[in-house]
Amino acid sequence: MEWLEIFDISLFRSLIRSATPIALIGFGAAMCSASGVLNIGLEGKMLNAAFVGIAASYYSGSALTGFIWGVSAGVLTAILFGFLSFNLGADEVLVGLAINIFSIAGTRYLLETLFKRRGFFSDPSIQGIDPITFDFLVDTRFEKIFSGYTPSIYLVFFLAIVLYLVYYKTRLGTAIRATGENPEAAEDAGINTLRMKWLTVVFSGVLAGIGGTFLSLENMTLFTEGMSAGKGYIGLVASSFGNNTPLGTFGASLFFGLGDAIGIRLQGVYELDSRLILMVPYALTVVVLILIGIRQRIRVRPVPIPEQ
């Protein structure tokens, strides 16, 4: 069974790398959804962050500066989303779509005007974010599993635990969930629901920012047009598949990462058409959406009528 051989440590590492941006977006989307905000604009936030991150790194020659600027771009896009939706009362979904479309066009425009490039941008002076190696793990059997990832990957595991605690065990978590499920009950309890929504939206902007810089400064050190490539939407699906809970979203993200990683590996084994492999995450998204639909259908399965 040669195909079984693909299940090894490098598959695991590839899985984790693929799952990271999806989980970052997914956590933000889950928190937004829990507070009653359907945040479709995460794709655009991520793309803006990826571009601004690489531009800042190029001009400053510092990975940290690139990271900070990238995250700021995610946050600013999130503030724009909140301002249009909450302050001006525009439809959340339309605002999200507008941000996504604007970000594709905006980053392409800046790519051409600032760097005189089309399609993609890469330069030796761009500083990427380096992986972290744990010296105490070197030459142990755990080295290959736990060591040598970039910071965002460790952050995702950390966030899964922290968000779980916040979600279920703090006043903030219950306040966010109450805001999404019954805003009147929340207001009644003295919770400022608008503040909760702002909080989750800005938080999702921070994570989308980190996700964006992960794509352009960590995973690779380059920017390509539309490099977020639907990960913002896949993250949204992951949060929905995970019932908008932290651990559920995390699990769903790992599932997407697994699909992606298996696809890449099978390419090596069977010499599949690479374009087919590139389709895997999106095909998987459709499969998951079907599963979500089936799950809802099962939930309302009609009670049988008793025989007389």
């Binding site: 065990k169 006043r171 219950t174 306040a175 969930r177 019954n182 009147e184 009950a185 009644d188 309890a189």
Partner: peptide, 30 residues
């Protein structure tokens, strides 16, 4: 007590009753 109840459906009675004022332990958890 409003005419239409202001309750969070997926929360338990206690979670609804304590909402916003839940007692916390020394680590800040509910």
């Amino acid at each position: 007590v409003h005419q239409e109840f202001h309750l969070v459906p997926s929360f338990t009675a206690a979670e609804n009753i304590g909402l916003g004022q839940e007692p916390r332990n020394s680590r800040g958890f509910i």
